[in-house]
Nucleic acid binder design. Structure first.
Lengths: 349, 349
DNA sequence: CGCCTACCTGCGAACGTTTGCAAGCCGGCC
DNA sequence: GGCCGGCTTGCAAACGTTCGCAGGTAGGCG
């Protein structure tokens, strides 16, 4: 072993070397190793090539292949912030789906700063991503439109813009919020508030709409100020908005939060107002994020399958990447939700 | 706009096109755009090239560059499971450090199944990663040794193997466990147990060692069976091991858990034994993972900076990748720990 | 026995960069 | 005025694949 081999990475085996070893042309090796073209080569040489490749421990150089084929088998995943416990499972679902078809993912973070999207997109594009999964959609998302216009296939996940041409995998937010309200109504609550997320997000909108619809259906009033929305889906905003709502409507006995993080903020606001949950005020979250069952009190929330959401989105994207047809019918998947009963809700006093 | 342009990604601008536009040779454009070689080209043509690149909105094709330079500016990150709330912040620290130097990361999951490491490594290698950050090290890790032997620079994070030649960024686990014990002793506890992680992990070992050392220093006994270790760092294993410990030593008034997940398991075991935390038994965790402050009770735990750990590991790796010297002195960074006082610890009855 | 076809393989260019080498040009110095 | 050296640029080969094209061989059929 030479010194350089010991200290530096030993050069990987190339197609050419396998070809020499098997006594054939590199192109033949390429064909033999690619399932798509394998039937072009005779059984005899196929064996020889396979044996040679095995013996030399050949691995195809993805970079060279990508350059030649103009496809990187890589997709970009744009999320606001991996710290939000919603995303790890989603990412895992994405990667598992991608792994099955030899794709990989490159993650980019926007930190909720939407202007970062186009910036991060540029570097993803430079790295040759074949498509994009975007979890940062806003209702009127010009950036998303321009992505789509640039010709890179996009799939939206969790949230979606009003541009119906862009496929999306979301949950039935409207229905989820309805279920939350129905649960509270069933417990006997009548003065219910909504501490919602930003109305620039499809989730914030749909959940607020669902809340209103369910209240109406239950014959309950929604006085002004009992439905408010935060500027972000964070604990802090949940606390702030919940505080305002409580100030304006001290008589509410239950609140439907925009998501679990905001529900935690509600916990804080209630504590600050010397109210107990669920004894004085019930709280319902949305998402059933990791550890929702461990909070104090354990959070009653609207559950959906984060992993499945990621998995489905990745599958939609891959299908889109592989289909020759330029414009497949835009898919808009909506995952089911279900109520998870824990200890943050109880009958009103 | 032609139909194909509308339906497919419009072909990105190439170096050649910029060259034509600026009236120079492609090589000159390459030199002008690369900071390393920029001083080779005259101020005059530099301006022309820059203008042309700007005008055409040129982006360098990373794949082509990688093929030519044999460096992908990509590193692999191998973690057991992104669902463990320890990792998101760590990943973020890694990516932020990488982003500053134009690197990107590719994530791989082992799910604690160590045999997956080499398998996933193969695909990372195929994708041309320049180096690896590995969070799955075991005490005697043959796989890790073989990675290092294959010539791909590796940095260990969070855990480390006994192979001192491989750089690592970990926490001072020993000291952390000591601090935990000291805190409990100060509260007045004397019968303290340790519900530890696997002894095949450096973290499990060092924390157990720190526990023993601190007990000895405090003049306290460590009867057999009061220090046990689980097969994995999970809630379930925490519950199981804590159950056994409690059965053998019903008189313990405090337990130091191997990490926060195991601490949650301890909560479960205590509840199952009709014991209250901290009234009957105090619990200290390790890691201060997300939401540790939200548990019931809020978890007293040993804190360290997950983000910083990722950041530091990425910097070590990048430095290693950029240095020409084949074997830089192996760095073994150890981050500081500190006690975060919450509500899971209290004086013994 | 000859021709056509089908099957297999080789050839070489191309994907978009980077980089060693050489050439051209200009200025300065003897 | 000639030569030398430095600065700037162009040339062309490479990085490791894939793929259109063509050629060669063998087999079948008339």
């Amino acid at each position: 072993m030479t010194e350089s081999a010991a200290s530096r990475a030993l050069a990987p085996v190339t197609l050419r070397q396998v070809a020499a070893h098997a006594g054939v042309h590199p192109a033949t090796v390429s064909r033999a190793l690619n399932p798509e073209t394998q039937q072009m080569v005779s059984a005899d040489t196929l064996q020889r090539v396979l044996a040679a490749a095995q013996e030399l421990n050949y691995r195809t150089n993805t970079i060279a292949r990508s350059l030649r084929t103009q496809r990187s088998l890589t997709v970009g995943v744009v999320i606001p912030d991996i710290t939000n416990p919603l995303f790890p499972r989603m990412l895992r679902g994405i990667d598992d789906a991608l792994e099955r078809v030899q794709y990989a993912s490159l993650i980019a973070y926007t930190d909720g700063r939407d202007e970062r999207l186009l910036d991060r997109f540029e570097v993803l594009r430079q790295r040759g991503v074949d498509g994009l999964i975007v979890a940062t959609a806003r209702h009127a998302d010009r950036a998303l439109d321009s992505l789509e216009a640039s010709g890179v296939p996009v799939v939206q996940i969790n949230r979606r813009s009003q541009n119906r041409a862009i496929p999306s995998v979301t949950v039935d937010d409207r229905r989820g919020a309805q279920i939350a309200v129905e649960h509270l109504v069933e417990l006997g609550h009548r003065r219910i508030a909504h501490v919602g997320g930003p109305q620039s997000h499809s989730t914030g909108r749909a959940r607020a709409a669902g809340f209103r619809a369910a209240m109406r259906r239950a014959g309950l009033e929604v006085p002004p100020g009992s439905v408010q929305s935060g500027r972000a889906v964070t604990i802090e905003e949940g606390a702030r908005v919940c505080g305002t709502v409580l100030a304006e409507h001290p008589d509410v006995t239950a609140v439907v939060a925009g998501n679990d993080l905001m529900a935690l903020g509600c916990y804080d606001a209630l504590r600050a107002a010397d109210l107990r949950c669920p004894a004085d005020v019930s709280v319902v979250g949305f998402n059933d994020m990791t550890f929702a069952d461990r909070f104090d009190p354990p959070l009653t929330t609207i559950h959906f399958d984060h992993y499945e959401m990621g998995h489905a989105a990745a599958e939609v994207l891959v299908r889109r990447l592989r289909s020759a047809s330029p414009v497949p019918a835009a898919v808009r998947l909506e995952l089911d939700t279900q109520l998870v009963l824990r200890a943050s809700t109880a009958p009103p006093r």
